[in-house]
Structures are given as C-alpha cells and as structure tokens.
Amino acid sequence: MIWEADPATLIVLALLVGGYAAFALALKRWPTVIQLIAFSGAILAIVGALTGPVDELVKQRSFALYIFQQLVLVFIAPPLILAGTPDWMARPVLTHRLIEPLARFLTRPLVAYILFGAAFALVHFPPVCDRVCHVHPVYGDVDTVLLLVGLILWFPLLSPLPEYPRLSYPMQVMYIFLLMIPMTAVAAPITMAQSVVYIYYVEGPHPFGLSPMADQVLGGIIMWVGQGVYLMFVFSAIFFRWARREDETPPFNRRPVPLRPLPRQRSHAI
C-alpha cells in the first residue's frame, strides 16, 4: 500500500514543522527535550491519523475511523502542540501588535469554548456536513479548521505564555466540564439515530465488514465514550495538580502556634 496523504494535510504538517524549525533557527534557541517530545508526538499523531492506511480506510467510508481522526485533531494534537511550544517561540507572534488584540479575544475562555462548540457542532450537522465535509478538496480544510479551533480550545488550559495566563485550576475543571456539552450534543444523537444521518455514509458496505448503520453507532460510541473517558483523565490530572499546588503552598507560619493570638492574614487562594 502506498502511503498517501491529502495535499491539505501535507500543507498543514509542513507549516507546523517548518514554522517550528524556522523559529528555532531564527531565534537561535533550542526547545527542551520534553517540548520536543511533545511536539513530535503531535506531528506523529497527525501523521498517523490523517495519512496512510487510516486515511485510506476513511476514504473507503469508515465512519468510526473518521470520528477517531477528529478526536485526534481536537483532543490529542492541540494539547501536545501547545505543550511543545516554548514561550520564546510563542511570544513574538502573540505579542505582535497586530495579532495581540485578536489573539486576546480568541483565547478568552468563553470565546474559545463557544468557537469550538459552534465549529464542532456545525461540522457534524447533517445538512452542513453533507455539503462540505466530504467534498474534496474542502475535506482537508475541515480538518484544518478542527485543528485550529482545537488549539484555541486548549489555549486557556495550556497557554505557553505567562502574558496569557492560564485559567486557575478550579476554573480549568469547570472548563473541562463545560466541554462535555458540545461533545455529548454531537455524539449522543449520532449514536442513537435510527438511520444513517450523513448522505456520504449511506452507501455500503464499510471497511471491517460493518453495515453503514453499525459503523455509525460505533463511531458515535467512540466519540461519546472516548471524550468522556478522555475528559475524565484530564479532569483527574488537573485536580491532582491543583491539590499538589495547594499542598506546596507554604503555610503562613511554620512554628507551632496556638490557635488564638495570630495576626489576621487573608488568603485569596481558593
């Protein structure tokens, strides 16, 4: 089998890798090993999910793998890209005087969330999807849109720049919880639908010997259960980072003190 890829995907990959390398060379700095690993992880995830055999099966109308691609694009690649971007690389871009106002607006948590929710829901809304999603060459661009809104979505949680502060831990938990609305709203109806909802997938048979209907239920469950389990892990990770942060907060006073005569101090931490 020849390892094939859509031109749009190749362009995105080239832009990502080329941009990363160009910045590193131009600024003459080298990312840390962890950042490099994270970034290459993101690239590998995109290459694995959007090119070659997986993509081939998607082109043969595998709905389940198509959903898998999308989850990689919004849940796996963006956090890794953000974790792999050093602050000195993001700073020149995001503090540029032309870009900054837009970036500040787009990365406001609610804006990012609504943008992602709207894009994700629209891409899966049958009338829209039937007209846009599987019409080459727009097809590849839908992937790019998902990657982009995914990056914006994760930015408030994983911002590489101190100038763009991350959400506080409790708010991160809230954000993750909020994220379940668009995911469930899209996944549940697909899973429970009584007929094949997208025209493109009506024709059968699909790869793995699945009927179009079974493929759709499988895809829906991958999205539904997949996002639930994934977000549960993210929630756990955030929670324990929060707990550790609070544990490490030095007490006011290491000395054993009687409870009563203490100076009034106020903490803003919650």
């Binding site: 007490p251 006073n253 054993p256 409870l259």
Partner: peptide
C-alpha cells in the same frame, strides 16, 4: 477567629 496554617489545624496547634 483563628488563622489556619495547615490541614488538621487544631492538631498542628
């Protein structure tokens, strides 16, 4: 009103 410096505040005191 006491100022709390740790979990199990009374024990620590």
């Amino acid at each position: 009103v006491p100022t709390v410096t740790a979990r199990d505040a009374f024990w620590v005191a």
